[in-house]
């Protein structure tokens, strides 16, 4: 093998002080590799973020959705009821006896087979009844139901709780992902890594995880909100989605998620970077 020149000129006097130790694409590569290779571990950390954000999004999202449905729901539902009523009248016009025939067949213990029209008519009636129930519910509940003192306190409680759970969950996940790598940080410092490089590495890693976890959490939270809305108010929610409110929810939750994730990694990462290599390598998790 070729012998490497003995670097006789290499002394510490007059070393060049580079602000950046590694080009950014190297740091990005290392950070990405860390996440990819520790996929199981990073998924665990990320799932903490996902859960917290899903919870936060759901609590805020469902409140906004309920408000929208309560205020705009009754007139929309009224129109729908009118439509259904028109369809019912059409059936009755075709066969005036259809309602009484159906009643007789339902009462018969032998369950005689129903005609296609009778089945459709029955479904129509059920749908109408349910829609009327929902409208009555919304009208009696009204905004006062959401805005009375108890309900407001409850929502606020839930929101604070969601915030707290997100805070603690994310901070814990990030702290864990830094402390379990103290030894590695110590080793990297022995190899000549600058403190700034280590902090940068954790920043990028937590940013990746934050974006991933926050996005997934928000998607899950919104999906939950809509599924629950569908179960409570029926298909009418799909015409009453509060896009503006959801957008602000997404923005708020995204910002909160990213800030918390990066903040959660920054502090322990900075502390670890400042440690002397021996301390870092000896530190027990």
């Amino acid at each position: 093998m070729a012998k490497y020149e003995y670097q006789s000129g290499k002394t510490i006097h007059g070393i060049q002080r580079r602000r950046r130790q590694l080009p950014i694409h190297h740091t990005l590569h290392i950070a990405w590799q860390n996440i990819r290779v520790r996929l199981g571990r990073s998924l665990l950390v990320t799932s903490g973020i996902i859960l917290a954000l899903a919870f936060l999004t759901y609590i805020r999202g469902s409140d906004i959705l309920a408000r929208n449905v309560v205020t705009q729901g009754p007139p929309v539902l009224g129109e729908r009821i009118e439509e259904l009523e028109a369809q019912r009248q059409a059936f009755l016009a075709a066969d005036p006896q259809i309602a009484s025939k159906l009643k007789a067949k339902n009462a018969d213990e032998d369950h005689p087979p129903k005609t296609a029209e009778e089945n459709q008519f029955e479904a129509l009636q059920k749908k109408m009844r349910r829609t009327q129930q929902i409208r009555a519910g919304l009208e009696s509940e009204g905004l006062t139901g959401l805005d009375d003192k108890d309900a407001r306190i409850q929502t606020r409680w839930m929101l604070s709780l969601a915030m707290l759970v997100s805070f603690v969950g994310i901070l814990n996940a990030m702290l864990l992902s830094v402390t379990e790598r103290y030894a590695e940080i110590g080793t990297m410092k022995c190899l000549g890594a600058l403190d700034s490089l280590i902090v940068e590495l954790f920043l990028i890693e937590s940013f990746f995880q934050g974006v991933l976890g926050t996005t997934a959490g928000i998607v899950i939270g919104l999906a939950l909100t809509l599924i629950e809305g569908q179960a409570r108010y029926g298909s009418v929610v799909w015409t009453l989605i509060p896009y503006g409110g959801f957008l602000s929810t997404i923005l708020i939750c995204f910002t909160a998620g990213i800030v918390l994730t990066i903040g959660g990694a920054l502090y322990p990462g900075y502390r670890a970077a400042k440690m002397r290599p021996v301390e870092a390598m000896r530190a027990e998790v």
Partner: peptide, 22 residues
């Protein structure tokens, strides 16, 4: 300067190898 020294002047070998696992 310490980081420079560790990087250029000294090579460390540990009992526990201390390679970067990933």
């Amino acid at each position: 300067e310490l980081a420079w020294l560790r990087c250029h002047k000294i090579g460390y070998i540990f009992q526990t190898f201390n390679l970067i696992p990933v």
